[in-house]
Design a protein around this nucleic acid. Sequence first.
DNA 1: TAGATTGTTAATCGATTAACAATC
DNA 2: TAGATTGTTAATCGATTAACAATC
Lengths: 220, 220
Amino acid sequence: MTEDKKISMAVVRRLPRYYRYLGELLQKGVGKISSRELSEKMNVTASQIRQDLNNFGGFGQQGYGYNVEYLYNEIGKILGLHQNYKMIIVGVGNLGQAIANSNSFSKRGFKLVGLFDVNPKLIGMSIHGVEVMDVDCMEQFVKENGVDIAILTMPKTRVKETAENLAKWGIKGLWNFSPVDLIVPDTVQIENVHLSHSLMTLAYMINEAEEEREKKNKSE
Amino acid sequence: MTEDKKISMAVVRRLPRYYRYLGELLQKGVGKISSRELSEKMNVTASQIRQDLNNFGGFGQQGYGYNVEYLYNEIGKILGLHQNYKMIIVGVGNLGQAIANSNSFSKRGFKLVGLFDVNPKLIGMSIHGVEVMDVDCMEQFVKENGVDIAILTMPKTRVKETAENLAKWGIKGLWNFSPVDLIVPDTVQIENVHLSHSLMTLAYMINEAEEEREKKNKSE
DNA sequence: TAGATTGTTAATCGATTAACAATC
DNA sequence: TAGATTGTTAATCGATTAACAATC
């Protein structure tokens, strides 16, 4: 019956950043921190930090601040990093390989268990001890191994169909790198990484800044 | 004296998505579209589309809608895609190579002109006709070639220093893939791609959805 | 002209910031 | 106890949605 208010994604997307900063503090041996100190480091308001955290409960102590290690772990729990996730990569091109080779994810419970591609030249290869398999074997593999997350780094032409299949086979999350908006049942969560959007935004910012400078010069 | 109101990043970050959808319509040969039709395709409100576009001017016609090709081109201009950008990649590991090999950027005026690494094994190699050079040559290269954008795909230990140097050498934009928040003069624009944040957010959503389902089951 | 749809103003909603009482 | 800082409510700000007059 605990009627908890829905937490906004704006808040959720700030948590990993808090987590990163707290992790760094922890490594430096910092034991406690106040919302004000953290806000100065992170360039946000102390008020926002306190509001954000209090969505999930009171992690601090009045007059003292927050225990770094405790808060770090609690945010980790909120983000679901205390659990393990079995991941597969679908599409072992450059980007797929780049992600497969990045070991920073496995550190946090994201375990790569399979790689899939259509290219016979890649099938049978091994990256970081994980085998590249034929996509035709994917259904069986996903079902037998209880794969949680599929990383979609394949050509966009086949993404839609693949996503729909993976949803049917019980996948819980899709990390989509294709410039496509996927529609799946609400049993499947989607996180898009649209690199081209990101680059276009940078282009906008560059132009905007330049115009701003020109205008300023003119007015002088 | 045209006192133009500052456009929020929330709006700007929606533009690439409009641009993508309009590009697809254009390819399909669709000539015109109303804000309502587009809103249904994109799953946003028609009101938002009209508001967003009117930040930059009136691109439509009452009683008719928007000319797809015209609007596509106008958004392209707003995003700065009519210009060309010289880009370098700093750090030619897996991710750097993946981006270097992606030809989708060059199509839109983002031209890769140089690759840089510290690894002697990579230096001298060529990817897509672009040579991998020693980072020691980067200052000269950036200054002589008027490089606009640097893509930072290097280990995070050296990112801070590199970003500061690139800022000094006149770079206009940094596309940062390191889990680091960079501080640079306001002549340099930064766009961060924090893949680990993205994956953590997905983990949160998976857990959240699962809890939601459990709660629902219990209450039945 | 009648119908459609924009551009734009007004209303609503949500997110951020400020303030301060509670409390360590 | 006095000082510090949280947790939380209230005020502000900004973004989204609704409504409709303008106009093609």
